[in-house]
Design a protein around this nucleic acid. Structure first.
Length: 451
RNA sequence: GGAGAGGUGUCCGAGCGGUUUAUGGAGCCGGUCUCGAAAACCGGUGCCCGUUUAUGCGGGUCGAGGGUUCGAAUCCCUCCCUCUCCGCCA
C-alpha cells in the first residue's frame, strides 16, 4: 500500500511513477475521498469532544447533587442541553435547531450516522489503495516487456555437447525419475511425480540450499504453514487483486501459499521490532501452489510450470536506509548457489512494467537450460520497500524510546526447485542418457551419476 | 470433539457503569548522586488518526464486531484466539 499522505502531498509524482508501470490510477477519486473523509472526521471529532465534556460534567456532579437534580441534568445532557455549566458557550436553542435540521433527536444519533459515513469512506478509500502497486525505484529501467529488461551480468558458459542435448522431460522419463502420466492420473494436468533419483535430486537441492544460506549467508531457517489466512495475502499484495491465481479452501477460509514470501512477511505482522534487531534474515523451504490459468504449450511443458512446486525462499526485514544494499546481497546469495552448482546464468534488472505488484526494484536470475534451449527464471529478488510493511503494520524502533517506523521487506527465491532440477538434468546430461551429478551435490545424493 | 478458565499499552498486572482523562510495577529515556559504574531517589515514557507544526490541541484505542446507556475496559449478544482437563491421533 502506498502512503496516503504522500499521495495527498505529491499526487503528480505518484501518478507519473505508476504510469511507468503502465498503471493508470483513479487519482481524482482518491484525493476527493480523502478530503471528504478528513472533513467529516473533523466534524465528528469536535462533536465528540463536546459530548465528552458534557458527560464528564455528569460524572463530576454525581457526588454533589441530589437525585432529582442529577436526573434533570442527565435529561438535559441527553438532549444535549447547554445550560449545564458556567463555561458552555453554545445555546441550547441553537443546538436543538441543528438536530431538528438533521431530523435527529440526540447527538448520539447524529454521531452514529456520521461515523457510519466515515466508515463507508474509509472502506472505499482503502479498497482503492489496496489495488495500487508499489512505486518503481528511479534506477529501474523504462519499459513494458521482456525485451526491456536489462542484463546486468552473466556467469559461466553454456555447455557444448557432441550430441543433440535432450530436454529434461525426455531425460527424466527415460531414466524413470519423472512420471508425468501418473501425476496426471492423481491430480490432473500440470502435476507430475518424481521418483527415485528424481525425488532425491530435488531433496538434495533443497537441503544444499538451506545449508548454504543458514551456515554461510547468515539466514535463520523457518518451517512455515503452507496454508494461511486471507489477511496474510492482503498483507503481501496477493489479495485482493490476484486472487484468481490462488487456491482457497472456502470451508475453513484457508489459502494455500503461492510462495513462502507470504507466511514470512506475516511472521512479524503487527509488531514493533526493538532497536538492534534488524536486519532479520530468514530462509524457508515450502511447497508453492498456483492456479496458473494459462493455456498448455511450450511454456508449461515438463517441470517448468506446475500447479505445485517447491522453492527455497530468502527473506529480509531491514531498516529503510539499508534496503537497497541488502537487495544486492540477496541477489549474490542466490547467485552463490547457482555458481556452486556450476550452472550458467544471467542476472537481469526488471523494467518498470515487468516488476511484481509489490516490488520497487527486482532482479531475476535466469539459468541456462541446454535441452529446452532457453533461459529459465529460477529466482526473482525484490525490494518491496515499505509497501508490505504498511499493509502488515511491521515497524521498528530506530533508537530506544524513538517513534516506530515502517521496515523495508525484501524477498528472493534461493531458488525455485523445478527449474534447478531442469537445469541440472539438461546441462549435466551425457550421451548415454545418464546424468552426472554436480560435485557440490554429490555428498547429498551419495552418487556421482544418475543412471 | 466435550467441559472449564481467560484475552488490558513493549512486558507483568489492577480495575468490573462516571473524580480513570486506563492504578501500580518492570523495561526504556533524561536527571541527581559518583572518579566511573551499580544501587537509591526525582521526572518523563503506549499506539493510531486528524489538526497545527514551536512547545500544542482534539479524537480513537482494554481480542474483533454489534447492542444497551447521557456515559462502557466494566453490562448484553455474536465471533476469534489462548490456556487447563478429558477424548482422539502422527
Amino acid at each position: 500500500m502506498l502512503d496516503i499522505q504522500l499521495i495527498r502531498k505529491s499526487p503528480q509524482v505518484v501518478e507519473q511513477a505508476l504510469l511507468r508501470r503502465g498503471e493508470d490510477i483513479p487519482l481524482e477519486r482518491i484525493l476527493h475521498l480523502d478530503e471528504t473523509r478528513r472533513k467529516l472526521l473533523q466534524e465528528v471529532e469536535s462533536m465528540r469532544a463536546n459530548q465528552n465534556q458534557l458527560n464528564r460534567l455528569v460524572g463530576r456532579a454525581k457526588g454533589t447533587r441530589t437525585a432529582d437534580d442529577l436526573s434533570a441534568l442527565v435529561e438535559q445532557v441527553r438532549l444535549m442541553g447547554y445550560e449545564v455549566g458556567p463555561n458552555t458557550a453554545s445555546t441550547r436553542e441553537g443546538f436543538a435547531s441543528f438536530l431538528v435540521h438533521l431530523g435527529r433527536e440526540t447527538l448520539s444519533q447524529v454521531l452514529d450516522q456520521r461515523q457510519a459515513d466515515i466508515r463507508r469512506l474509509d472502506k472505499k478509500l482503502e479498497s482503492l489503495l489496496l489495488y495500487l502497486p508499489n512505486l518503481p525505484h528511479p534506477t529501474v529501467p523504462e519499459g513494458t516487456g521482456d525485451e526491456d529488461n536489462v542484463t546486468v551480468r552473466t556467469w559461466g558458459e553454456p555447455p557444448t555437447f557432441p550430441f543433440t542435448p535432450r530436454p529434461h522431460y525426455e531425460i527424466g522419463e527415460a531414466l524413470g525419475i519423472i512420471d508425468f502420466e501418473r501425476g496426471v492420473k492423481l491430480s490432473g494436468t500440470r502435476f507430475y511425480v518424481l521418483k527415485g533419483a528424481g525425488a532425491r535430486l530435488q531433496r538434495a537441492l533443497i537441503t544444499f540450499m538451506l545449508d548454504v544460506h543458514t551456515r554461510e549467508h547468515g539466514y535463520t531457517e523457518a518451517y512455515l504453514p503452507f496454508m494461511v489466512k486471507g489477511e496474510c495475502l492482503v498483507g503481501t499484495g496477493s489479495l485482493p487483486r490476484f486472487g484468481d491465481n490462488l487456491y482457497h479452501d472456502a470451508e475453513e477460509d484457508y489459502w494455500w501459499v503461492p510462495t513462502a514470501e507470504v507466511p514470512l512477511t506475516n511472521l512479524h505482522r503487527d509488531e514493533i521490532l526493538e532497536p538492534g534487531t534488524l536486519p532479520l534474515c530468514y530462509t524457508a523451504y515450502t511447497a508453492c501452489f498456483r492456479r496458473e490459468k494459462m493455456a498448455a504449450g511450450k511454456e508449461t511443458r515438463g517441470l517448468k510450470r506446475g500447479h505445485q512446486f517447491d522453492k527455497v525462499e530468502m527473506y529480509k526485514f531491514t531498516e529503510p536506509d539499508h534496503s537497497y544494499e541488502e537487495l544486492e546481497k540477496l541477489v549474490s546469495d542466490a547467485e552463490d548457489i547457482v555458481q556452486r552448482l556450476g550452472l550458467p546464468y544471467r542476472v537481469r534488472m526488471l523494467c518498470a512494467g515487468e516488476m511484481g505488484f509489490q516490488s520497487a526494484k527486482s532482479y531475476d536470475i535466469d539459468v541456462w537450460a541446454s535441452g529446452v534451449g532457453e533461459w529459465l527464471e529460477a529466482s526473482s529478488c525484490s525490494n518491496c520497500t515499505d509497501f508490505q510493511a504498511r499493509r502488515t503494520r511491521i515497524r521498528y524502533r530506530p533508537e530506544p524510546g524513538a517513534r516506530p517506523q515502517l521496515v523495508h521487506t525484501l524477498n528472493g527465491s534461493g531458488l525455485a526447485l523445478p527449474r534447478m532440477v531442469i537445469a541440472v538434468l539438461e546441462n549435466y546430461q551425457r550421451e548415454d542418457g545418464t546424468v552426472s551429478v554436480p560435485p557440490a551435490l554429490q555428498p547429498y545424493l551419495g552418487t556421482e551419476v544418475i543412471s
